[in-house]
């Protein structure tokens, strides 16, 4: 009997993912059929039928996007609650590294959400244009998304059925912390230069977005996500935990830290996604997307402020840095 598969959260999660996949399968078959016969110039009965069917795909994808987003939060929550069952794990970090599928799964989830968001943006443009100028493009994008989601579904089941409840796993402090002097940061950075980069790139992102340097803004945002990840894990996180040796991206999702992790990672990823998607749209379609840009800026600024606030408040309270 596999204890993991009987956990309520895991069951609910796997059921939800399977249902979504069922819907996506329907959408996939329809989209494939549409792509074969699509001809917007035609006035045949069949073309009208196809256009109607396209609405079903659209509805399904809209639903899937919203639920996938909720399920990512739920997924993190579910693996966090499993940490009691897996020996050695104290937060989601241990559980997710219990086998090789976990990290890949989490990464795929983030990728899928990004592409779904891109699809939504393309779709709204396509509908507004009335004559479906990028219908083929967005359909091919959907087919690509569908294949990634198929892999993800397989990974979901592989991941949860291969967590061993007897084999001890590493806890977050061994995964991220004690590296015996080895530098975990990329490009041989140290904390000082990392922080410098963090704020510098943030300013570059702001500048690029405001001055409409699209290519620069995409590149800068990508770099910012990476640097921000390391900064949170190795610097800002220690102030959230108020412990200089505690480096973990997952523990902050727990109740002890008032679930602040959901806010930290949420603002970072949603902000970055919106920024990148809107910039790509502006490069590719030459269309102004002010709303997304502004929300992206606001979210990223909240993220930076939140991280800085933790350090500032700690300093004001204790008069020293960690």
């Amino acid at each position: 009997m596999n204890e993991i598969l009987l956990s309520n959260q895991v069951l609910v999660y796997l059921l939800s993912e399977s249902i979504l996949f069922g819907l996506l399968l329907i959408a996939f078959v329809i989209t494939f059929g549409i792509l074969l016969k699509w001809d917007f110039g035609s006035y045949s009965e069949q073309q009208f039928l196809l256009e109607r069917r396209a609405y079903l795909t659209m509805t399904i994808l809209l639903f899937v996007f919203v639920v996938k987003f909720l399920l990512l939060v739920y997924f993190v929550f579910a693996i966090d609650s499993l940490s009691l069952l897996v020996p050695g794990a104290m937060c989601a970090a241990g559980v997710i590294s219990a086998n090789d599928y976990g990290m890949l799964l989490l990464f795929l989830k983030l990728v899928i959400l990004f592409f779904l968001l891109l699809w939504m943006a393309l779709n709204s443009y396509d509908l507004r244009a009335k004559n479906y100028p990028i219908f083929r493009l967005k359909s091919w994008l959907f087919i690509a998304i569908f294949f990634i989601i198929s892999i993800e579904l397989g990974l979901n089941f592989a991941y949860f059925s291969h967590i061993d409840t007897l084999e001890p796993v590493n806890c977050c402090s061994t995964l991220y912390g004690q590296l015996e002097g080895a530098n975990p940061l990329p490009f041989g950075l140290n904390i000082m230069t990392l922080l410098l980069l963090f704020y510098l790139i943030y300013i570059v992102v702001m500048g690029a977005m405001l001055s409409k340097q699209r290519v620069l803004s995409v590149l800068a945002t990508l770099l910012f996500v990476m640097i921000a990840y390391y900064s949170v894990v190795y610097f800002f996180g220690t102030y959230i935990y108020e412990l200089p040796t505690h480096n973990c991206p997952f523990c902050m999702l727990q109740v002890e830290y008032y679930y602040v992790g959901y806010l930290v990672w949420g603002t970072l990823f949603v902000g970055a996604y919106l920024g990148i998607v809107s910039s790509i749209m502006e490069i590719g379609l030459k269309e102004e997307r002010k709303k997304e840009q502004t929300s992206a800026l606001i979210l990223l600024s909240i993220f930076v402020l939140l991280c800085t606030a933790y350090v500032a408040i700690y300093y004001l309270r204790n008069g020293v840095f960690l």
Partner: peptide, 25 residues
């Protein structure tokens, strides 16, 4: 707690909406 409420909501709402999607369309 959040875990239970969200579990109940997900296991109920996702199948529900999925079932209604196609007739709605």
């Amino acid at each position: 707690d959040f875990g239970i409420l969200s579990s109940i909501f997900l296991i109920y709402a996702i199948p529900f909406i999925s079932a209604v999607l196609i007739p709605t369309w």
